[in-house]
Design a protein around this nucleic acid. Structure first.
Lengths: 257, 257
DNA sequence: AAGTGGTCTAGACCACATT
DNA sequence: ATGTGGTCTAGACCACTTC
């Protein structure tokens, strides 16, 4: 990266932070390896002759693109390539089937929030089982999920359940139903406080929100709102089998730890 | 939204811009309708008793979440709900089939850039036809795409073609092949200068990048890199038919224009 | 205690669209 | 010419991790 100031040959009309971003991006390719820590922001800003805020604007974008990882109190490191995460319909199946990558971390019984109720055929005020799960890959959390199952989808449930057996029971009942199809949407969001904590990020971090509707008996039998870390994940939708991680990616990921 | 300063009852540990964001978000729900313009940033900042930069941090997040739309020289308006955009496999078909929502805007013949070449089975240096297309919905551009077709995928092409007939000829040849499957990945990116211009956004705007691989004869016969506006689009992957726009959404969208 | 990234301020000027 | 959002500066202090 040298001692170079930003060249004065800069096109007008091109913001400094944008130019800076491409310079840094190139430097990451040629002069740094995955996991390496960069100089701190104050030094970098001085080296390029810009204010720290401007430097940060460039770093923010590079982090958004998954090139960098910044952690308060620690520093900025070069991020490994994004993980390919399968979100279906690889196994067109109910959640919780077999030994998948999800882990249940809690559950509750309540009325569906308005934004979720809209996804069900029945209107507002539907009582639902709410199951919180998290997904871990390569030893790091990549997603957190809220699975909403209307009580009427699983009528066979006994009345009172211990917290420990509640979630498994709901999933078991779900899996008895005949799954007719799934339906997914992906959009950009920012992590709510609770999600951010589980994903080991700050609130407001960019996330990919996957909304899945599970159909059974001509109705929406369950809805899952999955929140993926946008910086570390590439969501894959394989029609022709899972797109597996290439050996090259696998190697680079290992270097990071 | 009132004349209210930010309440002093603010929890410590909660950043101002974060609190501000929730306040604004609630105000948007209750006191504004789609398409309405907000007070300008300097006024808003003064009204809430914060610096403009802090106010902007809140606005940026709301724009990222698709709640606001900001345009330089114009102002900040309340955004309509995101459009549901089908990205397949609704029609598991070659690009350019039938009357789809895509429009070809240019094409060229060159060697595939490294990042794209990696997606093909053949290594680097593959000669490809490059077709640029754009997707328009509800009268506004939502996506731009670069479609890469290796020359060896379409051997039946005559040598020299006029620019006008080039792209259609490539697509026509593609469609003669037997499509065995598709493969998609979605990740977050930021708009390159060229894409940003076509999407009517500033460079660096958040986008959802969809990478599609088309398989034929056991090979990757074509690759498409589609860039969707993350602020206005919700990508839908329908296994059970297209998820159509609800009447409610349709109405709100109309109010915006 | 020292060093990191995260938040916040109060200004200035620029690019752009509209009048 | 005016008003808007976009960029940039030079500081300050805070929250967090590590030593």
């Amino acid at each position: 990266m040298g001692t170079t100031q930003l060249e004065a040959t800069q096109d007008v009309q091109e913001p400094k932070y944008w130019h800076l971003k491409t310079v840094l991006n190139d430097a990451l390719d040629s002069e740094f390896s995955v996991g390496e820590i960069l100089p701190n922001e104050r030094d970098l800003a001085a080296r390029f002759g810009v204010a720290r805020a401007t430097l940060r604007q460039a770093l923010e974008q590079l982090e958004l693109e998954g090139r960098l990882q910044r952690r308060r109190g620690v520093g900025t490191t070069v991020a490994p390539p994004r993980m390919g995460v399968a979100v279906g319909p690889v196994d067109n199946a109910w959640p919780g089937i077999g030994n998948d990558t999800w882990r249940t971390v809690g559950c509750a019984e309540a009325v569906a929030p308005a934004a979720v109720a809209r996804l069900f055929d029945s209107g507002a005020g539907v009582p639902v089982h709410t199951i919180r799960r998290e997904r871990v890959m390569n030893g790091q959390p990549v997603a957190t999920e809220l699975l909403y199952v209307p009580a009427e989808s699983v009528p066979g449930l006994p009345g009172l359940l211990s917290p420990a057996s509640h979630a498994p029971a709901v999933l078991r009942e779900l899996q008895r139903l005949d799954l007719e199809g799934e339906d997914r949407a992906v959009e950009l969001g920012s992590a709510r406080a609770e999600d951010a904590k589980q994903l080991d990020r700050l609130p407001g971090a960019p996330v990919l929100v996957v909304t899945t509707r599970y159909f059974a008996a001509g109705q929406v039998a369950a809805v899952a709102i999955s929140t993926y870390r946008a910086d570390t994940c590439r969501l894959t939708f394989g029609d022709t089998g899972t797109v597996e991680v290439t050996p090259h990616e696998e190697q680079e990921r290992r270097q990071a730890s």
